[in-house]
């Protein structure tokens, strides 16, 4: 057990000193969060809602609607960036192992550490790296979007933080095992040079399926783990329902609270509130 902990600490420290980890898993994701808040969300404002809602609707209702909408918008960005971030982390970890195949072979044969312990330490490292990136991601998401939409007067917090955290960690494990299996496949088929391509497959798939689920969704793609992670994170972050065959960007329409406000509005005015902002 001591050897496993020692190796785990070594890999975690090594990963924390890896500039690629910080760039791809953290700073690059912060960049996307910034884009989501300040570029794509540039036209979102409570004034915009006020301008399209009849004047007799109470300010408190508009404010509530605004908060719900910003939660959905923030949750969508968080869920998407988690998918991107975790796949980036796993690439780094898989490459760490790939470039250590001889040391691993040597140490598992001639030291106190067995293959199982070695692999366990790597899985723990992946989890730790994922936890750190997730914490940074959650904190950054809450701060950036709360600042952007509410000037930090109201914090946009996840509806169910524990569930969000659990889904993210489960996603980290999936990503790691998937990426590791692919990389080991290159060794099994004796084509290690393919790793430079195969190693990026999880990264490419995460972007493709992540963007699809976010913007289009529906069909068998929703069964993919990447889509499931995105949808679950979105669901637990916002507290809104997951709606089949709806893109994540449109799911806020189905939030019971927002829907109730809209239906009330429809009943009173006989008109539909445009739901797209931005």
């Amino acid at each position: 057990m001591g050897a496993l902990i020692k190796l785990y600490k070594f890999y975690v420290k090594n990963n924390l000193k890896d500039p690629y980890y910080w760039f791809w898993a953290v700073f690059f994701i912060l960049f996307w969060l910034y884009i989501g808040a300040f570029v794509w969300g540039a036209n979102m404002s409570i004034e915009r809602i006020r301008s399209i809602i009849p004047h007799y609707i109470a300010d408190s209702t508009i404010h509530e609607l605004w908060i719900r909408m910003t939660i959905h918008y923030t949750g969508a960005w968080y869920a998407t960036n988690v998918v991107f971030s975790l796949s980036a982390i796993t690439i780094g970890l898989v490459y760490t192992v790939y470039y250590a195949t001889i040391p691993i072979r040597y140490l598992t044969k001639y030291s106190k550490i067995s293959s199982v312990k070695f692999y366990s330490s790597l899985v723990l490292t992946a989890l730790s790296s994922g936890i750190l990136a997730t914490v940074i991601l959650i904190v950054a998401t809450v701060l950036i979007y709360s600042y952007r939409f509410h000037g930090l007067k109201t914090l946009i917090l996840p509806h169910n933080s524990l569930a969000v955290f659990s889904v993210t960690l489960t996603a980290m494990l999936f990503n790691y095992f998937f990426a590791m299996t692919l990389s080991l496949l290159t060794i099994v088929i004796r084509k290690p040079r393919f790793l430079s391509f195969i190693g990026f497959i999880p990264f490419i798939i995460s972007y493709a399926l992540g963007m699809y689920t976010l913007q289009t969704s529906g069909g068998p793609v929703n069964l993919s783990p990447y889509s499931a992670v995105l949808l679950l994170n979105y669901h637990y972050f916002t507290g809104g329902p997951i709606v089949e065959n709806q893109s994540v960007t449109d799911m806020w329409r189905y939030d019971p609270l927002i829907n109730q406000l809209i239906l009330t509005q429809q009943a009173r005015q006989g008109r539909w509130i445009p739901l797209h902002y931005g």
């Binding site: 090594n14 470039y99 250590a100 040597y106």
Partner: peptide, 9 residues
């Protein structure tokens, strides 16, 4: 050298 890990530590 091959048995030693490449590390930033």
């Amino acid at each position: 050298p091959e048995i030693f890990m490449h590390t930033r530590l």
